[in-house]
């Protein structure tokens, strides 16, 4: 579904990623690495928030390297950014309506999300800025799912969230992946990431330090690569 070929990307004159590739064969890919390794930059380049200076991002057979993020969303990519981002001055419901507007089954998708995440139904008229971190993360995932994506890009979805909700979010991600959705996942919780992934990539200083097939068996070599 997603194939990244040899991309360089960064901010201004600072290059962060150096020739990073992700094979198109795996449906669930985990990107691992320490803070500052380039994980978020890779996801931002994938969704189009920054333009690679070299290389190609291919999605569903199409070269999307030069498409604006909203065009990539139209084609089936969805991005849940780091930090439980929501439109804080919009209510929970307005956050969902924003992405449902103009979609044929928009109302049904909103109803489906409110059923999947009951906390969002409870606080539907509350401004998103007043929700807890976990609720805002659920809202961010719900917004992404309303677009009926083929690929879900998740940047540390369980970071800073209380353990009970972490388990809920992890179950949601595993359920979606089992349902056939492709996932590109950045996650500090290595055990969960490897368990969910078909393929993993360890980034160090913006380069692929190690990659391989997912599964908890890879834990030892991943920890060793991350200790570099």
């Amino acid at each position: 579904m997603l194939e990244i070929v040899d991309i360089d990307a960064g901010y201004g004159g600072t290059k962060v990623l150096h020739g990073v590739s992700i094979p198109g064969s795996a449906n669930i890919v985990a990107v691992l690495g320490h803070n500052g390794a380039g994980k978020t930059t890779l996801l931002r380049a994938t969704i189009g928030l920054i333009r690679p200076t070299r290389g190609t991002v291919r999605f569903d057979g199409e070269d999307v390297t030069h498409l604006a993020p909203n065009r990539r969303v139209q084609r089936g990519m969805a991005y849940v950014a780091q930090g439980q981002q929501s439109f804080e001055q919009l209510t929970t419901l307005e956050n969902l309506q924003l992405v449902a507007d103009g979609r044929r089954n928009g109302r049904a998708k909103i109803a489906e999300m409110l059923e999947r995440f009951p906390a969002l139904a409870e606080f539907a008229t509350r401004k998103a800025g007043l929700l807890s971190g976990g609720q805002r993360q659920q809202l961010a995932i719900a917004r992404a799912l309303i677009t009926e994506p083929k690929l879900l890009i998740l940047d540390e979805p369980t970071e800073g969230i209380q353990p009970t909700i972490v388990a809920e979010i992890e179950q949601t991600i595993i359920g979606l992946a089992e349902g056939g959705l492709s996932v590109l996942l950045v996650e500090q919780h290595i055990g969960f990431a490897l368990e969910a992934a078909e393929h993993y990539v360890v980034l160090a200083s913006g380069r692929v330090a190690q990659e391989g097939t997912g599964g908890t068996a890879a834990m030892g070599s991943v920890r060793a690569a991350m200790a570099i």
Binding site: L49, E88, G102
Partner: peptide, 23 residues
């Protein structure tokens, strides 16, 4: 719906773009 898009773009342009809004 357009009002929502304006308010969303003003609050967080990147998030609006990645929510499918043509900012």
């Amino acid at each position: 719906s357009f009002g929502r898009r304006i308010r969303a773009t003003v609050q967080n342009r990147d998030l609006a773009e990645t929510s499918g809004v043509a900012t």
